[in-house]
Write a protein that binds this DNA or RNA. Sequence first.
RNA 1: GCCCGGGUGAUGGAAUGGUAGACAUAAUGGCCUCAAAAGCCAUGGUCCUUCGGGACGUGCGGGUUCGAGUCCCGCCCCGGGUACCA
Length: 822
Amino acid sequence: MSDHRYDPSEIEPRWQQVWETERTWEVSNDPDDRDKSYVLEMLPYPSGEPHIGHLKVYSVGDAVAHFQRRTGKRVLHPMGYDAFGLPAENHAIRTGQHPRDSTAAAIASFQKQFREWGISIDWTREFGTHEPRYYRWTQWIFLQLLEHGLAYRKDSAVNWCPNDATVLANEQVVDGQCERCGAEVEIRQLEQWFFRITDYADRLVDDLDTIEWPEHVKTMQRNWIGRSEGAEVVFRCEELGIDYPVFTTRPDTLFGATFFVMAPEHPDVERLAKGTGHEEEVREYVNRVLTHDKEERGSADREKTGVALGRTVTNPVNGEQIPMYVADYVLMEYGTGAIMAVPGHDERDYDFATKYGLEIRRVVEGTPEEGGDEHGLPYPGDGPLVNSHPDFDGMPNREALRAIVDWLDREGKGHASVNYRLRDWLLSRQRYWGCPIPVVHCEACGIVPVPEDQLPVVLPDVEDYAPKGKSPLAAAEDWVATTCPRCDAPARRETDTMDTFVDSSWYFLRYCDSANDEAAWDPAVVAQWAPVDQYIGGVEHAILHLLYARFFVKALHDLGHLSHQEPFAKLFTQGMITKDGAKMSKNKGNVVAPGSIVASHGADTARCYILFIGPPDQDADWSDKGLEGVHRFLSRLWRLSAAVAQETPDHPIPDDIDGDDLALVRKAHWAIEKVTGDMAGRFAFNTAIAAVMELTNEISRAYNDGSPSPGPLRFALTTAASLLFPFAPHTASDAYHLLTGERVWEEPWPASDPVYLDEETFELVCQVNGKVRDRVTAPSEAGEDELKALAHASPKLAPHLDGKTVVKEIVVPGKLVNIVVR
RNA sequence: GCCCGGGUGAUGGAAUGGUAGACAUAAUGGCCUCAAAAGCCAUGGUCCUUCGGGACGUGCGGGUUCGAGUCCCGCCCCGGGUACCA
């Protein structure tokens, strides 16, 4: 065996060549009798070189794809590049290399490495989202949404990143900072393009119940959408004759509203204060608050501040005049920018009321619990109503809530209402490297969509693409100057480009029909593959990409272009690979480059190790020593295969095997059972690989003893190679080929034979009072009485039973006997 | 604060309420070798031991059970998400 040397640098390119020339992983759009399975990993953002996270996500996805194929599925496993966007553009600005060129270089590097890793991709479907043949259809989708009112332009307060010199979507602002560059985000009043994702808020929440996603991702989406049910209630300022609707989730506490608060940004604040004598104070306060940065204002711990407006509004349920305030704890972005304050039952209102000496009234009887003041207030819980109105007092508050809303509705003073935290998706960007928005601005006709037959609106080549606060495209005069498609008058092109997340919100649809030049896709073809059966990617996209893609599919479904409503039936989020406990980064100098690992140990070792290191949804720390261990395992399996292939003839397994031969065959069947179970419905690659290791160790021991017969030995080894294939495709293919002359991917997934799974005997655990005292061999078919007798017969149990009374005997067939004594 | 994860040997991690620590790494001893590497064999939670075995052991404290890493109650610590959302 020692004369065979495991050399991945020879084995891996050889099999990659076979897959390349034979186009092994291509799949046609012509259905056959197999079930389909669409396995997809999130497409890479091509910048620089692939990193270890890429190796992980594609190793996981490839294992799934291979397992699906070998268990008889027709598998779609494509690849593409999310090529437009800020990182590429910023990189280009830094290096002076045009984003088109740096992106092309990065894509080439990814393509090369994906092949070196041996990922089983159908390359015929490949595209980059920056290619006109792709973004032509991104523009088409935009026009579809525009035509149906789901894309619109409006002037509003938007997030602006001063560093990247562009607006951002709410989803791209993290803790008041730009998600990409970390700069403090400013608020600017600008006219921008939006997608009406809020129209889909309810369905985006409700349909989470129809998909198999990790619960924490669903929760993040629910929280982001932030659906709250309650009521809109109108408070009227009699002096000025203006109605102020507020949103509340607690209309049951309306009788406890003792003041009214407006956000400092509320447009009516100044007008309300005017002529009350509070004017100056209010103006000063508002100015001070609005110049505070968002971060400081966002914290709930911060002491609330506010000033009186000098006006009152009428509480619609009891006609009380309650004072109006402006305060920084009320946000303009949520609800109506004004609230009714119920200090008795809301902690924030309570804090404010305490500070400014405002009335605090209990209207819900509470069970006394910890916290609160000497009266147990604020009390946020449930209970019967008090101090409200004879019609409602004594009524459980949840019931009263409905009754009060009904009453408001009848009186025309309010109605049931649902509020969302979700805002419409701001999609325009004042940047160069993105998909042009296909509209024209005409003085006479206004905004005019570019006719479909004129798509794509091609992104022009410009020399100076640095951000300037307005789109760099604006400088491309001969591109901007055009004629109105409607009236033929001189007109100007839209110069903003689309957010990169628009590009990636439909790419999984395009893979199904990527060669189609007549349409974005043929609905029949997409219907055949969709939805993605297994989607795999990082949890960092939980509310960005994953929410946007769901919105796109629902909108396109409603417009009649799709027959499904959820893009990703199952989602798996993989954990990060760290080094020395820290995220890999160039600054820390702890980067493990996949390319160098592949060069030194081979792709199979790298892939297998990443899957073996631990459960793939958890973070894991990279260890070079651990990598060596996996390398030794692959090497041992391969060398055994090479030796056995050479030394032993190909024999069938005789019917009457026993001893070591039988043990070997049994172990092989045990491994089939274990690996299959770990792969089907689970992502337990670590334990699956451990099972193949166990099998290989047993084969190795038997081989070194010189005991096994050729049939069982070959069977066990062939099985090991076959089971290993999804994780280490090159090594497994080579070992399998050495042993059988066959191609392992053309073989069905091995099936375990129950005959070999059942042993005639098992190790019976004998316990006294739950403590293990002995282990004896027992016949598998032994009955309870026989097992009890075996346990009692054990000399090791005798001292523990001596002089004691047997109280109870528990028998778990096939496992143990527990004798309870006193 | 709230919502999710997680806490098991020196290390990464295994364990449908039923033998805790599979598999791998590090370590130790041995074989092979002039030597080393590779490979192979053995040991491998802690403490005690008359070497038969015994006691303890899965973050902490209780509980349910014949039996708890696993289930329940109350905490502690770590990681992630989210946070004046009315």
